[in-house]
Design a protein around this nucleic acid. Structure first.
Ligand SMILES: [Mn+2]
Ligand SMILES: [Mn+2]
Ligand SMILES: [Zn+2]
Ligand SMILES: [Zn+2]
Lengths: 106, 106
DNA sequence: CACGAGATGTAGACTAAGTCTAAATCATGA
DNA sequence: TCATGATTTAGACTTAGTCTACATCTCGTG
């Protein structure tokens, strides 16, 4: 999980882990993922209406959601820039990202 | 709903509507909201792990989520700018927004 | 007016994500 | 060995959201 390039949901992780450890409990997977998030080893993304997904890529980056396939693509932090953030006086911005939706060409 | 300044969830809308129309069914509210989204009168946002929220503000804008209260604040489109979007060759970006999280000062 | 067809609304069962709890199992060190 | 605490577990529970089959409403036609 910590090294995947994907953005799996908790149940997806559970099913994958269960291939190697069929006895693993759903609760354990949820507990462990939440613990990893709490400890900063994973981040959770709320991009999908159907489930929370987990992101092992800790460096800040943006996301592109392919509306045709549901796939979530990482966009490197420096590829686009958010300008004029200093206008956000009155808000203490802890983190931000650009969320893009559309379709992948070809 | 179409004129609120808030970002209510479907169940929040249902409870509000039910104050005036106690007979209204949950299914009707969900169906209607989804229809409004389909017809472009509302947009749905997936920012919250617990529910989809609906946004009556159709002009493009950004969002700031107050992590202390859960409140979603609209940020005018021009207050910040996303630069270098032309580097997104390979992706057909239909829409995008900056999603910020943090706390509101004061 | 009577009636039938389509559209719209409704109740409530159902699904699935996520949480919680209480019990079982495991680890550790006296 | 055994007591104690930590980890894992099964499965009940909660809740957002969907689905289906039925009820009701609308409206044009004979
Ligand atoms: Mn969570
Ligand atoms: Mn939807
Ligand atoms: Zn990512
Ligand atoms: Zn908004």
């Amino acid at each position: 999980m910590l090294t995947t390039k994907e953005h799996p949901s908790a149940d997806r992780v559970w099913k994958t882990v269960a291939e190697s450890f069929p006895a693993i409990s759903r609760a354990t997977v949820y507990n462990t993922l939440n613990l990893f998030v709490e400890k900063g080893l994973l981040r959770e993304l709320h991009l999908d209406p159907d489930s929370v997904v987990f992101d092992p890529k800790l460096e800040t980056h943006h996301h592109f959601i392919d509306e045709a396939t549901g796939a979530i693509h990482d966009i490197p932090w420096d590829r686009v820039q958010v300008c004029n953030l200093e206008s956000m006086r009155g808000f203490k911005v802890r983190e931000y990202q650009v969320v893009m939706r559309g379709t992948k060409r070809h």
